[in-house]
């Protein structure tokens, strides 16, 4: 991570390096492991929360916050948070139930102390079950949890940046089950029509939701074709490969008038062998034995600690 100012971003395909600019890939992977341990310990501690999607989106979230996003940092490299987010990249989490990964990444990026992760879902905590602004937790700009609303909010934030002459970017993450919400498709029409080229939306394509596979519950069918027909630039990436996430996010901003939709292939529960690909872990916390088994498979890197 740079020590001051903004991360700069490479704009064209030719400039793309598969390796992170400011951190070695190995370092990013070390952070991702620590985040996975945070997620597991956070949900196990309160026997509630959503580990599956959180683990699946960990590599993406680490790449986004530690490499991709141009964030305001102070002289010590600590993030400076203000609600307006003028002149910096913004991220919105639409599928708010994966709050564990959001909170862990925000804490490890310096928005608040990692010790606060121990308060997740507890009374009087700033870390509500689903992200909220009411407790003024740095890094969170909108409440989410009731699905389907984040893309609209991101459209509004991107629209404001254009009006403000702010050349920074807006990112939003959604679930694939969430694509069943009608409001998504209202926003899907809006963004290309308003030429929101400063918006990149990512769909976590893990094919799983609470009641089963997305295919069985209410099939998304061909999301790429749908978004292309709505006027988006559509790309795909391997969400559990940090290099591929970085490479894809760096190259997808070339047309100033066209928003980008990235279909991100992930595995729910990635990093914990017994959770991978099983939708039962969408919203179930591991018990003590399961937690230990999972942590044993996720050894911390040197110099990285648990909260």
């Amino acid at each position: 991570m740079s020590t001051s100012g903004f991360h700069t971003r490479l704009k064209t395909d030719a400039d793309v390096d598969i390796r992170a600019t400011y951190m070695e890939l190995q370092q990013l992977e070390g952070i991702a492991t620590a985040v996975r341990r945070d997620i597991l310990r956070m949900v196990a501690a309160v026997n509630s929360g959503h580990p599956g999607g959180s683990l699946g989106c960990t590599d993406f979230m680490v790449a986004l916050y530690f490499d991709i996003m141009r964030r305001k940092l102070d002289g010590d490299g600590k993030p400076v948070f203000d609600m307006n987010g003028h002149d910096e990249d913004l991220f919105f989490l639409s599928n708010g139930h994966i709050s564990p990964v959001f909170y862990s990444v925000l804490a490890r990026a310096g928005y608040f102390p990692i010790s606060e992760l121990a308060t997740f879902r507890k009374l009087d905590s700033r870390l509500q079950g689903h992200p909220a602004t009411a407790e003024h937790i740095p890094g969170v700009r909108i409440a989410s949890g009731s699905l389907g609303q984040g893309l609209s909010v991101a459209c509004g934030a991107a629209y404001a940046k254009k009006l403000n002459g702010d050349d920074k970017h807006v990112y939003v993450l959604m679930g694939d089950g969430e694509q069943q919400e009608g409001q998504i498709w209202e926003a899907a029409q809006f963004a290309p029509n308003k030429k929101l080229g400063n918006l990149t939306a990512i769909i976590d394509l893990n094919h799983a939701q609470i009641d089963g596979t997305t295919q069985n519950v209410n099939d998304n069918r061909d999301l790429a074709a749908k978004y292309r027909a709505f006027g988006w630039f559509v790309d795909e990436m391997e969400g559990n490969d940090i290099s591929d996430v970085i490479r894809t996010l760096r190259k997808s901003q070339e047309d100033p008038d066209v928003p980008t939709m990235i279909l991100m292939h992930t595995e729910m529960g990635f990093g914990v062998e017994y959770m991978v690909g099983n939708y039962k872990w969408h919203g179930t916390a591991p018990n003590a034995d399961q937690l230990q088994q999972a942590l044993n498979g996720l050894p911390l890197s040197i110099g990285v600690t648990d909260y």
Binding site: N84, I142, S152, V153, G156, A160, N164, E186
Partner: peptide
Amino acid sequence: PERFVQCGIAEANMIGVSAGLTIGGKIP
């Protein structure tokens, strides 16, 4: 005209877009 946003018949999106606009300091 540049400060007018026609959302079409999509009220849910209009509310979300409005919330997003406030983040950039606008008063929707």
